[in-house]
Design a protein around this nucleic acid. Structure first.
Lengths: 364, 364
DNA sequence: GTGTTTGTTGCATACGTATTCATTGATCGT
DNA sequence: ACGATCAATGAATACGTATGCAACAAACAC
């Protein structure tokens, strides 16, 4: 379309002879510096063997003609692109920008970059995956539910290392990093019951999301064992509005809850707003609310949300470690790293002081 | 390091003969389907001339061996990578995830992807730019202050189309898309004064950021003209905490303001929390607060922030239009697209009803 | 039947860089 | 002074794909 080769007029005319306004290549630099193309390549490679003065000369020439190495050509040979794919489902949940921020900063210190794959909820999953694979990324970090993805498929189709972060898959041959969601659920149930709450409720996220399911399992198990009754449960879809709706529906119940644990912070904030503003309740006096993640907003004084903090930075460190381990040994058994989280006590939950001291729980 | 070529044992051994566990290429598909490599390429190219049954055969073979085209090899020839760089400074401000979300979804519908460049505030700018250029992206969208960047440099060094979004540069030869910040500042000052406020204050963002400067200029101009006095001004650094601090400092003044316009929403929320919780003031009764951007949180009932909405989706449409126009005509004069925003009336500002009807302002 | 058009296909080459190999000049030990 | 070692460099090739060109077959008009 914007190709303007006049292919017929001239018999043989190499691109070099045409004065095309196009990005300079290593050959252009070589010519300008009076060296070979290989020398230029070596000057731009970290361990490259070049005489210091030659390198200087080359770098000056490159600077002069605004040369920048072409990463794609390089990646053809080195088989490394320096790109890590981050697959994300719901980027409007502030937890994911935090992951994105941490991840991209960590990667940039080692010269790598994040390519973002923003999966819509209704996007066919096969398409999404092969979309990622085309980019020959060095690794794939999935922080999204990926509804209906068969992991067998994933590992078959993928020659790139994959790590699931904040997601697990039962008996899956994939590396995963996550918080100890089951223990956290138990911990929070105990915390609420120890502080005198009698009717804890749970607000679940997207149906089938492992994080929500695990937190619910731990929570429900303890509540059932200690009170003899199932906790009330509502669905919040992992969104603020979902939290609002869930709170409403919980309080349509004849015996509404006296405490609510939401599977993530953004839902907890929705719950809080609904309780206070729509239902006119006092938090934490009438109802205690606890979230999960510890996003920035949770600390704002208007909310002052008590929540269970995920160790984002450590999780990403682990994810990157798993990726690089798998690069050097593709056949290694998949690892499931489980990290401990931390309760962050603020004002949205009425908790007894005794228990507050024991704020850190250990990992399984 | 993980290269295991035994280069000495065998004289000549092409890669194809070695049974390397490596990604299949178009040649592998060609062999499997009994066609030439060119046929495979054509089968995977949109307008490619191949017989329908041949294409079918090829696609089946590709599927069978999990072949995925290598985008980097393709980009060497087509000179298009399908990647758009988004340069962002402060991703923890929810406004930018919103941009990121909108942008990546729009791009994905046309088969393009976002590569994120998350610039730290202290990162040397030259490094950052050549970091971007290495990727040969089809276009660069800058939504960051890029402190101290000389635009002359930028356009010289860059052979890729560049668009500044939510940023402008005085007399710059670069395409830009932004809201009419100056008019918005004037509009909001008039709005506050019309509603009986007498001492409007302004909370500025990062020093030198064009958006903040322009909004301030319009605001100050009207306040000065109509009240005869400069508005109070505090700095908020574009962050929540900055907004908190700015509110404090404004109210250390002997004659504190009766209304505050913050240059973005996240600061306005900090202002709100500081006023209500630290200073015990009633918003909007004692003080009116207005923000800018209309991020999701602004609508939450706890804040119900009156704010000036930026037309994010339209801004991104325009940015993409400018990019593609510049691809087809690199020498076109730079355009500065200015879009109108909309006032969003909520409860954080005490405004007279009459004015509220006239909520939409026109662009300059 | 011939000549012409149309539609498919394969061959060969180019994209920009990294890397192997051979060559050269320099350095060193003796 | 002389061979041996070493550092620096260039020539040539490969990475995986797209594409111009030629070859070819089929279809068609006459």
């Amino acid at each position: 379309m914007n190709k303007k080769n006049g292919p017929t007029l001239v018999k043989k005319l190499s691109r070099q002879e045409l004065v095309v306004h196009s990005k300079p290549t290593s050959r252009d630099v070589a010519r300008a510096a009076g060296v070979s193309q290989s020398a230029v390549s070596r000057a731009f490679t970290d361990g490259g063997k070049v005489a210091p003065e030659t390198r200087e000369k080359i770098l000056r020439a490159a600077e002069a003609i605004n040369y920048v190495p072409n990463i794609h050509a390089r990646s053809l040979i080195t088989r490394r692109t320096g790109m890590i794919a981050l697959v994300v489902g719901d980027i409007t949940n502030p937890f994911y920008p935090e992951i994105l921020d941490t991840l991209s900063k960590k990667l940039q210190t080692v010269g790598q970059r994040v390519v973002l794959f923003n999966i819509s909820r209704d996007e066919p999953i096969d398409l999404a995956i092969s979309g990622v694979l085309k980019y020959q990324v060095d690794g794939i970090i999935i922080a999204s539910a990926l509804p209906g993805i068969s992991i067998a498929e994933l590992s078959l189709k993928t020659y790139s290392p994959v790590v699931l972060i904040n997601r697990t898959i039962r008996s899956a041959p994939v590396d995963t990093v996550s918080c100890d969601n089951f223990s956290a659920g138990k911990f929070l149930a105990n915390l609420l019951l120890d502080s005198g709450h009698r009717r804890p409720a749970f607000v679940a996220g997207l149906a089938g999301a492992s994080t929500s399911v695990e937190r619910e399992r731990g929570f429900r198990e303890v509540v059932l064992a200690r009170t003899g009754k199932e906790p009330l449960i509502a669905n919040g879809d992992f969104t603020y509005q979902g939290g609002v709706d869930a709170a409403r529906s919980l309080f349509e119940n004849k015996y509404p809850p006296d405490s609510i644990f939401a599977a993530n912070d953004i839902m907890a904030l929705g719950v809080l707003d609904a309780l206070r503003i729509e239902l006119g309740l006092n938090v934490p006096k009438d109802v205690s609310v606890i979230g999960f993640d510890d996003i920035g907003t949770a600390a704002w004084p208007s909310y002052s949300l008590t929540t269970f903090r995920q160790p984002v930075s450590e999780m990403i460190d682990e994810a990157l470690r798993l990726l690089s381990e798998r690069i050097s040994d593709p056949k290694r058994k998949p690892a499931n790293v489980v990290l401990p989280g931390t309760i962050v006590l603020r004002k949205s939950a009425r908790l007894s002081t005794k228990r507050q001291r024991k704020s850190q729980i250990a990992s399984a």
